[in-house]
Write a protein that binds this DNA or RNA. Structure first.
Lengths: 289, 289
DNA sequence: CATAATAGTTCAGTTTTACTTCATTAAATT
DNA sequence: AATTTAATGAAGTAAAACTGAACTATTATG
């Protein structure tokens, strides 16, 4: 094994290929976009580095020697490989290629960003998007262990190590009463409640807000699924606090009593990880929404 | 087709391979013989040029991302190709392989350099040597038109354009009389002659020398082949002037009357051409002879 | 045959790039 | 908390690549 390889640059190899494919150095120089002088010097440097003469004088022009075929072959091959690599990089960069493992809470996947997501998919047909919808806690865990590249979730009380977040949007949470009334009355009379489960990120914010308002927090049913909570409210099982976009979505929207609180949806990614190219594009698409 | 390729250098690709094969950047840096800082900067530059992030942070170390496999593959491939090229270049430089088309006049090929040639062949078994033996004029023509890489011939009266020569050795030309006498007697009584043909380089020198000595130049037979001329002398057909190494070679050497002149053998090559590596070695071998 | 045009190189000067050393940041270890 | 280690950043320097202009040698042209 040779201890040190000649430090050939792609540029120099391009010069060689261009010269092989052009009648004169001047044309070759134009083809690669440099002055004839630069081409000449670059080729001289290439010759020096390879350590073998590549050209014969023929009148006032220089022609490639027949026995430098291996060098020219090498140049062509490496230039072609590099073109392939550049293509791969371009596709990767533009996100038209590869895989994006995306986690989203339901409100994001459906109400907030459903349309943006559909459009993004359509614009990047070669990008395999794995969408995982679930509670924020699950998403963050999967993000940390590398099962996801990117997640849209509720801002966590404490950010897990190795995860960085950026606020995407703020949304309202409103109180919905079972009888459809618009006025909730004094807070002491609110409830009982059907809420998101205890471990849900949104739940703690809701409970805190309710307590601030002096409302009793008696919980009679729990679900991660807002549709389930909505239906329970409709059935008169209890009161709920829900994101307005979910509670007032679809055929039978609930009637809002009052805005109780707000929650922030954030984009989360592994802080060490290189920004996923497709992920960056998607973030942009979501923000523009 | 991407208009312009990233100008990756072999060095940078080596860095990448070294990092992939080493536990830490510091070890990789040592392997390629640069400072860790240089390695870090070089890889950053590589990343920038490819346009794709290559590493993930993992604690305080950086590890290659799984999805940069294409880049690493590319690097390995190009480095390997370059190692091959370097090997080829080394062999070519040392003249251990390839082809050398060599022209020699008979005296050089047989008497002067036969042994050196045999030895050179033995020392470079992979070098395909095409030996073409012929008159100097023919050799020079073939040298000019590219059919030969190198020629050993008699110094021409006028050097053809595009050919450069270097004196290799000087040898004696002697008069040989048909009856084997050692004393040629007065020059007026010399001849008639059996000589090299008119167009031979050596012939003009001989004629000039004879005229200077006042000898009549009546030519009764001509041949390029010294053995033929020798035989004619032996047969009593006439006198001759021959290189002593040829006239006094073999089983039946002629008996020399007198040194008449000298001729110079030269090494000739195309002046525009790059020095043929094997050719240079051969020149050296011939000189040492 | 002189003259102009052409192909390529060399030179001088400028900008880029790559490297080394030293300092700094941040994570792992003691 | 202090130390060690991995990697990066900054400043300075040496090497390299480039441009434009001058130059050499060859070929074409009036």
């Amino acid at each position: 094994m040779p201890q040190s390889l000649p430090d050939l640059s792609i540029r120099q190899l391009e010069y060689l290929v261009a010269v092989a494919d052009s009648d004169t150095f001047a044309l070759a120089a134009e083809q690669v976009g440099v002055s004839p002088s630069a081409l000449s010097q670059g080729l001289a440097e290439l010759e020096r580095r390879v350590g073998v003469s590549l050209f014969d004088r023929e009148g006032r022009r220089r022609v490639l020697r027949a026995d430098t075929e291996p060098v020219l072959d090498h140049a062509r091959q490496v230039v072609a490989l590099t073109a392939d690599l550049a293509g791969w990089a371009r596709r990767t960069r533009s996100g038209d290629h590869g895989r994006l493992r995306l986690g989203m809470i339901d409100a994001s996947a459906v109400q907030h960003h459903g349309e943006a997501l559909r459009q993004f998919r359509a614009e990047h047909p070669e990008l395999r998007i794995h969408l995982r919808v679930g509670p924020s806690g699950d998403l963050l865990r999967e993000l940390v262990d590398g099962s996801l590249d990117l997640a849209v979730c509720v801002e966590p009380a404490e950010r897990p190590r190795g995860v960085s977040t950026e606020v995407l949007l703020t949304e309202d949470l409103a109180i919905y009463a079972p009888d459809g009334r618009r006025n909730p009355g004094p807070s002491a009379g609110w409830g009982p409640w059907v809420l998101f489960p205890r471990n849900a990120h949104t739940r703690s914010g809701i409970e805190a807000a309710l307590r601030r308002r002096g409302a009793p927090v008696e919980v009679v049913a729990e679900s991660h699924q807002p549709e389930v909570l909505c239906e329970m409210v409709r059935l008169g099982l209890g009161w709920s606090v829900l994101p307005v976009v979910q509670a007032e979505w679809g055929e039978q929207p609930l009637v809002r009593c009052e805005i109780l609180a707000r929650r922030q949806l954030v984009i989360a990614r592994r802080s060490g990880a290189a920004p996923h190219p497709a992920g960056l594009l998607l973030e942009q698409a979501l923000r523009e929404n």
